[in-house]
Every structure is written in C-alpha cells, then in structure tokens.
C-alpha cells in the first residue's frame, strides 16, 4: 500500500434513471488498487459489485450512467472520456474477463483470429508477429498444443479452456489492470482451482493489478490481497483479506462469514441473517443493513454511517465503531 495507486475510485455513484424515479445501484464507493495488487469485491446479488466493475471498464448498460465521483487510472481520469477514447484504453490498459466465456468470444471466428485482431489493434506489429504472440499467450494460459488449437473455434473448447482463451484475450495488450467479473462461477470446482491459480500466477509475473468481483468468499480468500464487502450499493467493509475473514467487523460481514458452510466446522446450524438484501427501490434510511442487523440502535435508523478505521488499513461503515469504540 506504499505504492501510488494504479486505480483510484472516488465517491463513485451509478444511477439508473427510470419512469418511477432513479435507482442508485452504486452509492459513494471509493477504493484504490495498487500495481500488482488483487482487490476482491464480494457481495450478494444486487449489491452493486458488477456495476462497479462495469463502470470502471466503461461498459455500463444504458440507461445506467455514472452520476458522480471519479475513476482515475494512473492519475488520469477515465470516467468522462468519449466512447472512442475509452475504447482504446479498454483492451490496452484495462482487460476484462466475464463470467460466461462463451459470450466474450465470437463463435464465428477462430480463437487465433480473435487474438491476432486484438493484438494488432493495440500494438503496431505485423500479422506474423501477432500470431507468434497469440501462440505464446495460449501457451502461457495453459492450453495444451496451442499450434493445433489456435485455428479452432470457440465451440471446440471446453468451458475451462474457453475461460483460458478469454484470459489470453484480456492479456493481449499487457494491460495494467484486469477487471474479472465472476471469472470462475460458471466452471466446475476442479477447473475453478486451475483458473484461480492461473490468475494468481499471471498477476505475480506481470505485475498486473486485478479487481476480482465474485460472490464466492472462498475464491477471494485464495486470491485477493484486500477485500471490499459490498451491501446495497455501498462498501460495508474493506481491509486486508486475512483480517476481514478472520476478524470481520461489520455485522453484515460477520453474518456473511458465519453463513458459509465450511469443512471441518461441525456447526449444527449455520449463522443466519434473516431477511434479504433490500431491493434498490426500497433501501431503508440510515444504514441499509439496519433492519437485519442484530446490533441495531437508534442512530443506525436515521444516519448513514461512513467508513471508519477499525484496524490498520481496515475500515467498516458501522456506527458500532464510531468514537473509536471498535478499536478495542
């Protein structure tokens, strides 16, 4: 954390204007990612984690739009760039990996053609050199016999192999940042472990920063350096991954950790957070978690908590920790 941040998100707000009023999908979200760092973003469906990722790569689906705050990459603001300029940054400086590898690949083009096209778009090299680079990338992401596989089409690859191709595509231009949105969710457990190991290795070897969006705390525990826990469009807690998992501070994180079944933990019942996350149309006043929170008190129902320090580099947005009480 001594490094200058590569990505800085500050007060990001994403809105969906609609006939019945405006929905706020991401509300005042701020975080940094340092070069070579993996930031995990975890939360349940509708928490706004994917929306944050889409805002960063500039691919929010209309009518969704960034309504406030800023996103800077390497000190340069990228949230207000014209479409064409953002398109050049995406791909060259920011790579994207999505959940379903089939939707990120064009079924009509061979894998090699898609790789070569991406490489030549972002760097000034010959077709031949691009093909060599494509072969090297396929090799690097662990596709056996790349010389034979490079001219095949996406449907000829299995799910795990397709996700490797997507990762190769994201790496084409040596991006500084990769936004990976649920990259292992569609895969079998054994393939999942392979893909996580691959992402980790690439990140280490290339010094690429990764924003890893997932609902799976296990994947975060394995991969991330820091983790941000999102709830109802906001970051509830952010901190070093070990700290957050072993010693969660926000009552939502505590409940979330307790609700995950674990091997070797012989609990008869799992911790249960009653109710479910509010819909975007009915986010309660004060702290969004207050109707489900076992520690709720009056202040939580009226005043929205901002993030406050609970430990070194570890912040939680919870009134329990106001006045420094939580430091104990």
């Amino acid at each position: 954390m001594q490094n200058e941040p590569l990505l800085r998100v500050d007060g990001l707000r994403v809105e969906f204007p609609g006939r019945r009023g405006t929905l706020v999908a991401v509300d005042d979200v701020s975080f940094d990612i340092a070069p070579g760092e993996v930031l995990g973003v975890v939360g349940e469906s509708g928490a706004g984690k994917s929306m944050t990722g889409s805002a960063i790569i500039g691919l929010l689906e209309p009518p969704g739009r960034i309504a406030g705050g800023s996103i800077s990459l390497d000190g340069r603001r990228i949230d207000n760039l014209p479409y064409e300029e953002m398109r050049r940054i995406r791909g060259k400086h920011i790579g994207a990996i999505f959940q379903d590898p089939l939707t990120s690949l064009n079924p009509l083009y061979s894998v090699g053609r898609q790789l070569v096209e991406t490489i030549t778009t972002h760097s000034d090299i010959s077709e031949k050199a691009a093909r060599d680079r494509a072969l090297a990338l396929l090799q690097e992401v662990g596709i056996p016999a790349p010389e034979r596989r490079i001219d095949q089409y996406p449907h000829q690859f299995s799910g795990g192999m397709r996700q490797r191709v997507v990762i190769a595509l994201a790496l084409c231009a040596n991006p500084r940042l990769i936004v990976a949105d649920e990259p292992t969710t569609a895969l079998d457990v054994s393939i999942q472990a392979q893909i996580i190991a691959l992402l980790k290795r690439l990140c280490r070897e290339h010094g690429t920063a990764v924003m890893l969006v997932t609902h799976d705390m296990g994947v975060i525990a394995e991969t991330a350096d820091r983790v941000a826990v999102m709830y109802a469009g906001r970051i509830a807690e952010i901190g070093p991954v070990r700290d957050v998992i072993k010693n969660p501070r926000h009552p939502y994180t505590v409940g979330l950790m307790g609700s995950i079944p674990r091997m070797g933990h012989d609990a008869e019942r799992l911790t249960q957070i009653d109710g479910s996350m509010p819909r975007l149309t009915e986010i309660p006043a004060g702290c969004a978690f207050n109707p489900r929170c076992p520690y709720v008190f009056d202040r939580c129902r009226v005043e929205r908590p901002d993030r406050m320090a609970v430990a070194p580099f570890h912040e939680a947005a919870c009134w329990k920790y106001a006045d420094g009480v939580g430091h104990a």
Partner: peptide, 14 residues
Amino acid sequence: LDVSVQAQILNLMK
C-alpha cells in the same frame, strides 16, 4: 441462491 440465503434454506431443511 446467495450464501446468506443458502444458510437460511440449509437450516430450514435440517
């Protein structure tokens, strides 16, 4: 289902 909801359903099933 999300993990917190999964916990509710698993508890209910037990």
